[in-house]
Measured scan of single mutants.
Amino acid sequence: TKVFYNGTYVEFNNPEKAKKYAEKVAKKVGGTFTEKNGQFHVE
């Protein structure tokens, strides 16, 4: 499961961990995250 952010991504074996990371990054940058095709995108 990949989490895309700012033109790069971090890959996780565990979708649950990926979601938590996406939430954390989104919170940090004051943005939101969306799930597309089983991957997370932070905006």
Rank of each mutant, 00 (worst) to 15 (best):
G30F: 06
F33G: 01
N13E: 15
V10T: 10
V3D: 00
T32V: 12
T8G: 12
N13C: 11
F12E: 00
N13D: 15
T1E: 02
K28A: 14
V3A: 02
Y9L: 06
G7Y: 05
V25G: 02
Y9I: 11
A18K: 00
T34Q: 10
K17F: 11
A22E: 01
H41G: 02
Q39S: 13
H41M: 08
N13F: 11
N37M: 08
T8C: 11
F40P: 01
F4I: 06
K24V: 11
V29H: 08
G38T: 03
T8H: 13
F33S: 06
F12N: 00
F33R: 03
K20P: 03
T8W: 14
K2M: 09
V3C: 05
Y21G: 01
T8A: 11
T1Q: 05
G7Q: 06
K28Y: 13
V42L: 04
G30K: 08
E16Q: 11
G38K: 05
K19P: 01
A22P: 01
N37W: 07
E11P: 05
E23G: 05
N6C: 12
K36D: 06
N13L: 12
E43R: 10
P15G: 06
F40G: 00
K28E: 15
P15S: 11
G31K: 04
K20M: 12
H41C: 12
A26K: 01
A22S: 03
T32M: 10
N37A: 08
E16P: 02
Q39V: 13
V29Y: 12
F33E: 01
T32I: 13
V25L: 15
A22K: 01
N14K: 07
V10R: 12
T1R: 05
G30N: 11
A26Y: 02
G38V: 00
F40C: 03
Q39T: 09
T1N: 08
E35V: 12
K20E: 15
N13S: 15
G38M: 04
N13R: 12
K24P: 00
V10Q: 07
T1V: 14
E43Q: 13
V29E: 05
G31Y: 04
F12H: 02
E16N: 09
F4E: 03
K20A: 14
H41S: 05
G30L: 06
N6D: 09
E35G: 04
K17V: 14
T32S: 11
G38Q: 05
E16I: 12
N13G: 11
K27T: 09
A26F: 02
F12P: 00
F40T: 00
V29P: 02
K20V: 11
E11H: 10
E23K: 09
Q39K: 04
Q39N: 15
V42H: 03
V10Y: 09
F4A: 02
F4R: 02
V10M: 10
A26S: 07
G30Y: 05
N37R: 06
T8R: 12
F33M: 12
K19I: 07
K36L: 11
T34P: 00
K17E: 15
K19C: 07
E43V: 15
K24A: 15
G7V: 02
K24S: 14
H41F: 15
Y21C: 08
Q39C: 08
A26N: 02
V25T: 08
N14H: 09
N6F: 09
Q39G: 10
F12A: 00
A22T: 01
H41E: 06
G7I: 02
G7E: 06
G30W: 05
K24F: 15
V25N: 02
F4V: 06
G31L: 06
K24Q: 14
K20H: 10
K2C: 12
F40W: 13
E35Q: 10
E11D: 06
V10S: 06
E16C: 09
T32L: 08
G38A: 05
N37L: 08
F40L: 07
A18Q: 01
F4D: 01
K19G: 04
T8K: 12
K36H: 10
N13P: 13
F40K: 01
A26C: 08
T8Q: 11
G38H: 05
V25Y: 08
T34R: 11
A26V: 05
K2Y: 10
A22W: 02
T32Q: 09
E23A: 12
K20W: 12
V29K: 05
Y5K: 02
K27N: 12
Q39E: 14
V42S: 01
A22L: 02
E11G: 06
K28H: 13
A18V: 00
E43N: 12
V25W: 13
K36M: 10
G38S: 05
T8Y: 14
N6T: 04
Y21M: 03
N14V: 06
K36W: 09
T34G: 05
E11N: 08
A22D: 00
G30R: 07
N14A: 07
V3R: 00
N6R: 12
K28G: 08
E23P: 00
E16W: 09
V29N: 07
A26P: 01
F4Y: 14
K27Y: 09
V29Q: 06
F4M: 04
T32Y: 14
T32W: 14
Q39I: 12
A26T: 03
N14L: 07
F33I: 15
T1F: 15
K36C: 09
F4P: 00
E23D: 07
E23Q: 12
K27I: 12
F4L: 04
V3L: 02
V29S: 07
K17N: 13
E35W: 11
G30S: 07
G7N: 09
F40A: 01
T34L: 11
Q39Y: 09
N37Y: 08
E16T: 10
A26Q: 02
A18P: 00
T32D: 05
G30T: 04
Y21W: 13
V25S: 04
Y21S: 01
E11Q: 11
E16D: 12
A22N: 00
F40V: 03
V25D: 01
K24R: 13
T1S: 09
N37S: 07
G31Q: 04
V42T: 02
E35N: 06
F40S: 02
E16R: 09
G30V: 04
N6I: 05
H41P: 00
V42E: 00
K28P: 02
N14Q: 07
